[in-house]
Structures are given as structure tokens and as C-alpha cells.
Simulated scan of single mutants.
Amino acid sequence: MPLSAARTRATSRLPAALFPGDDAEPSVVDAIDAARQTPGFGTDVVATLTWARDATRETGAATASVDAVWQLLASTAALDVAAGRILEPHLDAQRILAEAWDDGIAPDLRPLAADASATWGVFAAEGPGARLTASRTATQTATGWTLTGTKPWCSLAAHLTHALVTAWTDDESRGLFAIALRSPEVHVHDGPWHARGLPHIVSAPIDLDTAPAVAVGDPGWYLSRPGFATGGMGVAATWWGGATGILDALADAASTDRADQLARVHLGRADAALWAARATLADAAARAADGDPIDRVILAARVRAIVADAAEAVLRTADHALGPAPLVTDDAHARRVADLHLYLRQHHAERDLARLGRDLVSHRAQILAASAGESGW
């Protein structure tokens, strides 16, 4: 069978087709096939993490394309939103470490006993009253750094073996560090976590008391690298995949004998919103490595805003079209809606739009200043 035909057939087996059929990645198809055969996929955290670790052997490598990464994220979330939420940070960590190696940084993770069996998170959030600081250790120590303080919003810390965390190296700079979460110097909180969406994916603080840490790049590398923007858009691809799972419910409702024009309007509205978001993601995948850092930051902000708006439109449309029944009688639908509602709060709505506006104003001023300089004014 020609490769293009095989890939087209493979795409038809993916629950979310983010890219055209001839771009389907066989490794993604294999991973999704394995997901379908995993008992408790999305609800059994340990089983889903084990799947995620195995599914990212290829897509976590530096050679994996953005297409492949986003296909895997979107298709996983289309099967189960919580599974997408479990996969995304582990895959992001793998990509960050691969990028570090590609940049010639090559952090030595052996002192942390991080091998191929490790499962990873990325903890980069900041919060009021919580601060994590990094200190250099004596040269004879294995890791070179220790971390002390509290890190908020550490998703799945009780289940993961390792994490990449940001910590302050001084009053103005943050660095990225790898830590072993099962180290005795790390205390993982079990809450508070009263979530109705993503109930098994506890995002609680961790306390560190001179925990051994390995630096991944110099301070500032984590935020300035090209992959930072790409990773942020990968979250949007996961949102998109989660929202596509709601289309089936709308299509079913629009296909019944009792369906009226409104049912078809709701389906059309949701489909159009997701198609526009899909086109945005596909275009962004081609642009992800291009441009200067400001261009990448603006691209990521635009993509996240567009996809978040589309996903929220689908949730709102489903509420209007389907009413309360599936929210109380259909466990899979109710869980998907609750999980996606919470997951979308990683987008900070108007605050992120304000940040985008600020960056656009700054970028425009730079362009005008450069133009004025070139014209001699």
C-alpha cells in the first residue's frame, strides 16, 4: 500500500484530525490505538501516565515535528480530556529536555535517577505567598543546586516521579530545574482540591527544603527558547481536541427524527468554530519556529485566545442545544464538559488578551522606531 494511502487510512482512525490526511503520523495512530485498549484511560491516573510515558518515546524527541506533537495531544483529548491533561505536561517536559540537548545544554539527570521509566510534570506557575528559590551548592555535590520554598499548582505531583520547575535565582531572574519528586526533601500536598472537573488531577502546592536540583539551561533560558511558545500552543491543541469530542453529541441530536432547524444551527455553529480553530492551529504549526521571540509570543497568544474562544463557544452551544439531560444522565459527556471547563481556565481570558494587546503595542512601537531610523528622521 502506498505510504500516502496508509497514512490516510491511519488518519481515519484518529479521533481528532488536526492536520490533512496525508500528514498523519503512524506513531500517533499507534499511541491512540494503545489508549483505546488501556483500562481506565483518563480516570486511572497511574495507567494513563504509564501510557503517556510509552506514547511519547518518539513524539518527545527533538526530531518529532510540531504536527506529530499536536496530533497526539488533540487526539488524546478527543478520547478523554483528562487523559490529554495528563499527557500534555509529560510531553512538554520531554520536549523541553530534548530542546536543551539540542541547544548543547545536556543536563546530567543521573543524580536524580531519571531514566526512561520517569514520568514528568512542568511546574512554572507563581502565586501570592509562595516562592521557590534556587541556591548553588558546593562543587562536590552531584546536582549543583538546591531548591527551597513552595511551588503552587503542581499537577499530579503525588503521582509523578520527576518535574521541571522554575525557581528564582535572584530577585529578577528565574531558572529551570529538574527535581526528583520522591526525594525526602520534597513534600507534596494533597489539596485543597475540590474540583468537579479533572477531579483526579490534583494541582496542589509542593514544599521543598534544600531539595537537590539540576539546572536546565541558564536563568531565562526556559522563557526565551523557541519551544516555550510552541508548548503554550500545544495546550491549545489539547483544548481543541477536547472540544471536538462534544461535536458527536450535537451531531446525534441533529440527526434524530425530532431534530429541528435549531439543532442543526447549533451543530453548524460548533463545527464552524472548531474548524476556524483547527485552521489557526494548522497555520501556527507551520510558523512555530519562525520569527523573532516577540513574534512567537504574539503568535502563541493569538492561537490560545482563538482556540479557547472556540472551545468555550462549543461548550455554550452544547448547553443550549442539549439541555440538562446529558449533563445528568450521560457520564462521559458530563465528565468531558466539566473537565474541559476547568482545563480552559489555564487561559486567563481578558488578562491574556490584555497581555497580547500590550505586546502588540510594544511591537508596533519597535517597528515604527526602526522605520523612522531607516528613513533618517
Results as ranks from 00 to 15, higher is better:
Asp252Arg: 14
Ala211Asn: 09
Gly242Lys: 08
His194Ser: 14
Pro192Val: 14
Asp171Tyr: 13
Ser173Gly: 14
Glu185Thr: 04
Trp239Val: 11
Ser173Pro: 05
His194Trp: 13
Pro152Asn: 14
Ala204Cys: 12
Ile246Glu: 15
Thr146Pro: 09
Thr139Gly: 02
Trp221Pro: 04
Ser183Ile: 03
Gly227Ala: 11
Ser203Gln: 07
Pro184Ile: 03
Ser203Gly: 06
Ala180Gly: 11
Gly241Trp: 04
Thr148Cys: 12
Trp193Gly: 03
Thr148Gly: 08
Ala213Met: 09
Thr230Ile: 10
Thr238Asn: 11
Trp168Tyr: 15
Asp218Thr: 14
Tyr222Gly: 02
Val216Met: 01
Val186Asn: 01
Ala180Thr: 08
Gly144Gln: 00
Ala195Met: 12
Thr141Met: 00
Gly234Trp: 02
Gly242Thr: 11
Val216Ala: 02
Ala195Gln: 10
Val165Tyr: 05
Ala237Arg: 01
Leu181Gln: 06
Ala138Tyr: 03
Leu198Val: 11
Phe228Met: 09
Gly231Met: 06
Arg174Gln: 07
Pro226Ile: 01
Thr169Ser: 14
Leu223Gly: 08
Ala157Trp: 06
Leu156Glu: 14
Pro199Phe: 05
His189Ile: 13
Ser203Pro: 05
Leu147Trp: 02
Val202Asp: 00
Ser183Phe: 00
Thr210Gln: 14
Ala142Asp: 00
Leu147Arg: 05
Gly227Gln: 09
Arg174Tyr: 05
Thr169Lys: 12
Lys151Arg: 07
Ser155Glu: 07
Ser224Ile: 06
Thr141Asn: 01
Thr230Tyr: 02
Thr210Leu: 14
Pro205Thr: 08
Gly241Asp: 04
Ala195Ser: 14
Arg182Thr: 15
Pro212Asp: 03
Ala237His: 02
Pro219Leu: 05
Phe228Lys: 04
Gln140Met: 10
Thr166Trp: 06
Gly231Thr: 08
Ser224Val: 01
Thr141Trp: 00
Gln140Thr: 15
His162Ser: 05
Ala213Ser: 10
Met233Lys: 00
Glu185Ile: 03
Gly245Asp: 07
Pro219His: 04
Asp207Gly: 15
Leu176Ile: 04
Ala253Asn: 05
Thr143Asp: 01
Thr238Pro: 03
Pro205Gly: 09
Gly217Asp: 01
Thr238Lys: 13
Trp193Arg: 13
Ala158Leu: 14
Cys154Ile: 10
Pro199Thr: 09
